[in-house]
Amino acid sequence: MAVLRKSGTGVLRIGCTPSLGLGVMPKVIRPFTERHPDVHIRLQTVGGHQLREGLLHGLYDLVLTTSEIDHPHLDVNVVHQSGAVCVMHPEHPLAARDTLRVRDLRGQFVILLNADDALHVAVQRLMQKAAVEPLATIETTYSGTICTMAAEGAGIGIVNPYVAAVFGHGLRVVPLAPRCPVEVRMAFSGHSAPSEIAEEFAALLAAHFRVRSPLAEKAGRVRGG
């Protein structure tokens, strides 16, 4: 690994959450491999806790996540902010709306990530504040699963806009209001300096997020109850 850090060639070990592995990493890895065809990339998609522990134990060169992974031994920066979106079958009764408000979830089948996920917790708080009771909830581990279930008409899914963009061709995707913040964090180990190739990959990630998608812009403008 010392050779890697000095030369900038060899292996780049990346960890990220599954939704970012689908919605962001392919767009950044492609131009990186064009510049560095000799670099072997190891991309692991796991949950936020595993990402934090892996970075602390030297398993990753950099991590990208929508989870909070703050730790005194990690360098963590928010590289993008957006808002959660609702995904549903294009023929869903609410699909014609430009925005779904939390009150619109009353009496609906709602598809969420597992109860320990930060987005799940935030959505539940919004529904409790608005005294909204869905007809039923479906919980699952992956945002991609939420999108595929919504595309089959199983209910209204709530996910981040990055994964929604991957499945957008088969879904109606609209912002959720009030805005439910989604933050993307990039993290490095605080024990040692990143390698040259890790720094370059981080720069490509930052450049990617500087070009905000129309969907993310729209979600960011939504306010109110």
Rank of each mutant, 00 (worst) to 15 (best):
V79R: 07
A203R: 13
D98G: 15
C180Q: 02
D38M: 03
D38W: 00
P175V: 13
A2F: 05
I69S: 07
V163H: 06
P194F: 00
I29D: 01
R172S: 10
C86S: 07
M186A: 02
H208W: 12
F167Q: 04
A206F: 01
H208M: 03
H73E: 15
I29G: 05
V184E: 05
A122W: 04
A122S: 13
H89Y: 03
V173W: 06
A95G: 12
D38C: 00
I111T: 03
H40K: 15
T141P: 00
G15F: 07
L204R: 12
L176Y: 02
L176G: 02
V102Y: 01
V110M: 00
A151S: 15
M25H: 02
Y142L: 14
T137H: 01
T141A: 11
S67C: 12
P18Q: 06
V110F: 02
M186V: 12
T145I: 08
K218W: 04
I29V: 12
E152L: 08
L62F: 05
E199I: 11
E200Q: 13
D116L: 08
G10C: 06
A164E: 05
E217Y: 07
R106I: 00
Q124V: 14
D98C: 00
I41N: 05
G225C: 11
A151E: 15
T9M: 02
V121W: 03
V87K: 04
I69P: 08
P37I: 06
A96G: 15
T148A: 10
R42Q: 11
V211H: 09
